[in-house]
Amino acid sequence: MPTVHFTANLQRHVASPTIVVEGATVGEVLAAVFEQNPRLRGYVVDEQGAVRKHMNVFIDGVQLRDRAGTSDAVTPESEIYVIQALSGG
């Protein structure tokens, strides 16, 4: 099953340990994560499920392409990183 890692910067606001969940797309994987950790959802995606503007998702080193639909495919061996883009001051 794919493994999902979350940026350490999220931990200040909501606990988000590395987790192994089922799913064939990024959207399915994240949905499985959020089922176990509902509060995390709003920190990673907006209310329509789109990845937040200043967040990034990498699947086996490749940046997520479908930010609105999160339909990018993952494999059972995938390593997924949910990290933040750099911005602000």
Binding site: V44, A85, G88
Partner: peptide, 8 residues
């Protein structure tokens, strides 16, 4: 407004 993580 967390910027990266949205408004809370």
């Amino acid at each position: 407004d967390h910027g990266h993580f949205g408004a809370k």
